[in-house]
């Protein structure tokens, strides 16, 4: 059976002080799919609107990844996710799940616009359900108010846009100094950008202490670096918090 690119996003499955975060739950789901159905792409974290009238736990972010599923495995994965999140999510959480075959999305722009609205506006479940129906996205609430569907749909939309989110986790290398070209050739990232807009100098090395974290920009995994006098340094956690 033919397989199709599938977007999967979840949101709002934890609570303050709970033993597992939404990101970690998403990692478990991706691991299950990897073991049983398809390779998965890295999870991206998408920051949504921070507003007092939104009942988020602590940071209001949504997690998304993609994989390749056929119609039958899509249903199996859906059943697994719903059961798993129902079981593992926090008692007071309001989880939501969004899943869609990319080929089935009716109009990318409408869905993407919804995603960016979720970064700047207070949205509601009625809108999320309407957009999901129009765009053929499977959307389901899990527990309590089920407000997580708003963010889950936004997670799919923002990942689809290719212009939002940052890698959850990091790329770990066995060295701390590397030439830009090596990162590109070995496929760790698709692009490297200097934050002040200067052109990247191919012979200038990138020095780093920790793993590397890319952002999604124009559909590419882009490493942002700052120019110091003698080398490039990837943007740290503090700077990437805004992505």
């Amino acid at each position: 059976m033919e397989k199709f690119k599938t977007y999967i996003a979840i949101d709002d499955t934890d609570e303050i002080g709970y033993f597992i975060s939404t990101g970690e739950i998403c990692e478990h789901i991706a691991k299950h799919i990897n073991s049983n159905y398809s390779k998965t792409t890295p999870i991206t974290r998408h920051q949504l609107y921070l507003h007092e009238s939104i009942a988020y736990t602590s940071h209001n972010s949504s997690m998304c990844f993609t994989c390749q599923l056929n119609p039958q495995s899509f249903e199996e994965v859906k059943a697994f996710i719903l059961e798993y999140i129902t079981h593992i999510s926090a008692p007071s959480s309001s989880g939501g799940v969004a899943m869609v075959f990319e080929k089935d999305i009716f109009q990318n722009k409408t869905l993407i616009d919804y995603g960016f609205d979720a970064k700047n506006k207070v949205l509601n479940k009625d809108l999320a359900y309407r957009i999901a129906k129009e765009q053929n996205v499977f959307l389901q609430e899990i527990k309590n108010e089920g407000n997580g569907i708003i963010g889950a749909l936004a997670g799919v939309a923002l990942r689809l846009s290719g212009n939002d989110g940052r890698l959850r986790g990091k790329i770990t290398l066995d060295k701390r100094v590397i030439l830009p070209e090596e990162l590109l050739v070995k496929g760790f990232v698709d692009g490297i950008e200097v934050v002040n807009g200067k052109a990247l100098i191919a012979s200038k090395k990138i020095t780093f202490d920790d793993g590397l974290k890319w952002i999604l920009k124009e559909g590419k995994r882009v490493l942002l670096v700052e120019d110091t006098q003698n080398f490039y340094r990837p943007l740290g956690k503090e700077s990437l918090a805004v992505f």
Binding site: G17, I20, S21, G23, K237, E238
Partner: peptide
């Protein structure tokens, strides 16, 4: 208490 998810630690 340190956030249990390192990903959400800003510093």
């Amino acid at each position: 208490i340190l956030d249990t998810d390192e990903e959400e630690c800003v510093v």
